[in-house]
Design a protein around this nucleic acid. Structure first.
Lengths: 105, 105
DNA sequence: CAAATTCTTTGACGCTCATCGAACGATAGC
DNA sequence: GCTATCGTTCGATGAGCGTCAAAGAATTTG
């Protein structure tokens, strides 16, 4: 059993919301970790790949912002949340943006 | 006579600062107008190309943020300020970013 | 010099945001 | 059924931001 958490449709993605989400270093660190790992993983596994030192409420808040911006898709599986980057939707709406923002260094 | 207002060096551009600057719709409108006009123009002429309805202090504030983020170069000429996009510096540091963010529509 | 133009600075106001601790919810495992 | 695990929600706090009116530079023009 799994359910996808509410998210904006592909054509309703707003650049202001997207850029505001990406402007935060912590969220960008999460996105970068998600971006390079092809395999879907749960929230805490992603955090483990970063060097973020934030409380779980704060991490949860950042995931929500990313999801509500349309940058990620979150699927609830059991007590875990599987988070993936919405590559295609982002590329269709803002071509090249993720690559430019999440490019290594 | 003309003098260039203080701005960050090309290699000290910070993505967080850049994205924060671009996240605001008003600043993005200014950037878009600057981006498409090749010829350098003064502040108020740029504003005239947009449909922004903001007080002059607010406009001035936004120009400052853009300049301090390293997105624009401002040269004081007489009582005017000539603002240009730092294309090359931005492209060197964050390839494709401006194109992705300032693409029409 | 005086007046008009162009832009900046200052100070204030309201709002949003990142962060945390504490409490809660849901699920898996024993 | 307990208990541990993974994550969310709530409430609060402190910092920062976008905005404006008023006042201040700096420069051109009459």
């Amino acid at each position: 059993m799994s359910r996808t958490l509410p998210e904006p449709s592909a054509d309703s993605l707003d650049l202001t919301v997207v850029l505001s989400a990406l402007a935060d270093p912590a969220r960008r660190a999460l996105m970068a970790a998600l971006y390079r790992n092809a395999e879907p993983v749960d929230c805490s596994a992603v955090v483990a790949e970063t060097d973020l030192d934030l409380s779980t409420p704060t991490i949860s808040h950042h995931y929500r912002v990313l999801r509500e911006a349309g940058l990620t898709r979150t699927v609830a599986q059991g007590r875990k949340r599987i988070v993936t980057v919405r590559h295609d939707d982002m590329e269709a709406r803002f071509p090249g943006l993720l690559a430019a923002v999440l490019a290594p260094r």
